[in-house]
C-alpha cells in the first residue's frame, strides 16, 4: 500500500488498542494506549506513527511509554507531582509522544507540567491539554525529567500513512483467531438467503 488514509478517531482508538494488545500489553493497558492515541490525534499529533515507534520494541519485551505514563500519572504525590517512577523516566524509551496524554492527566489535577533535559525543554502540557514542544523533543527519552512548568494545532482527523496502517493492522491481527469450521457454521455461514 502507498499513500495515506483518513481514519475516524474511534477507528484510530480501536486500532491502537488492538495493536497494543497484539504487542503484548494487558487489555487494561491496551485501552490506555487507545485512549492516548485518540487524545494525541485530537490535537493534531501523529498518534499512529508514534505508536509504531514503541509497538515493535514492546512486542520484543521492551518498556513502553504507556506503562511508563500510567506509572507516572498514578504514583503517589510528591512536591506536587507524582513520583510513580522514582528513578525517573528510563532512557531510550521509544515513542515518548505517548507520555503526553498521561502528563495531561497530571496537569489537569496539579497544574502544568514539563519534560526537560539538561539541554532545555522537551515538551510541556497545560491543564487544558495544550502541548508545547521544546527544542529537545526526540523519538526516544534521553535524560528527561518531569517537573512543574510555566497551543495545540487545530484538531483534524488523523491521516495515517499506508505503511503505518499496515504495521498497526499486523499488530492488531495478533488479537484475532483463525476461523474454525464450527464457528463459521454457528454464525450462519453456508446458509442460503434467497428466501
Amino acid at each position: 500500500m502507498t499513500g495515506a488514509m483518513e481514519l475516524s478517531y474511534s477507528e484510530l482508538r480501536s486500532l491502537v488498542t488492538k495493536a497494543a494488545r497484539g504487542a503484548g500489553l494487558e487489555w487494561g493497558l491496551a485501552e490506555e494506549a487507545g485512549w492516548a492515541a485518540e487524545w494525541l490525534a485530537r490535537r493534531g499529533l501523529p498518534a499512529a506513527d508514534w505508536a509504531m515507534l514503541w509497538l515493535g520494541p514492546r512486542s520484543e519485551g521492551q518498556a513502553c511509554p504507556v506503562e511508563a505514563g500510567c506509572r507516572l500519572a498514578e504514583g503517589p504525590e510528591h512536591d506536587g507531582l507524582p513520583v510513580g517512577l522514582p528513578d525517573g523516566l528510563p532512557d531510550g524509551l521509544p515513542g515518548p509522544g505517548y507520555l503526553l496524554p498521561f502528563m495531561a492527566r497530571v496537569a489537569a489535577a496539579r497544574g502544568p507540567v514539563a519534560l526537560t533535559s539538561a539541554l532545555g525543554l522537551v515538551a510541556a502540557v497545560a491543564p487544558d491539554g495544550q502541548v508545547t514542544f521544546g527544542p529537545c523533543w526526540g523519538t526516544k527519552t534521553s535524560g528527561w525529567t518531569l517537573g512543574p512548568a510555566a497551543g495545540p494545532a487545530p484538531a483534524t482527523r488523523p491521516t495515517v500513512a499506508r505503511m503505518t496502517l499496515e504495521g498497526l493492522d499486523a499488530m492488531a491481527l495478533r488479537t484475532t483467531v483463525p476461523k474454525s469450521d464450527s464457528s463459521s457454521r454457528d454464525a450462519g455461514a453456508g446458509t442460503m438467503d434467497n428466501d
Binding site: 500489553l25 494487558e26 487489555w27 487494561g28 493497558l29 485501552e31 490506555e32 498514578e74 503517589p76 510513580g84
Partner: peptide, 15 residues
C-alpha cells in the same frame, strides 16, 4: 496503584 502496577492484567477489570 501498587496493586495494579504488580498485577497489570487486572487493570481492565479494576477500571
Amino acid at each position: 496503584a501498587a496493586f495494579l502496577c504488580s498485577h497489570p492484567g487486572h487493570r481492565h477489570t479494576a477500571r
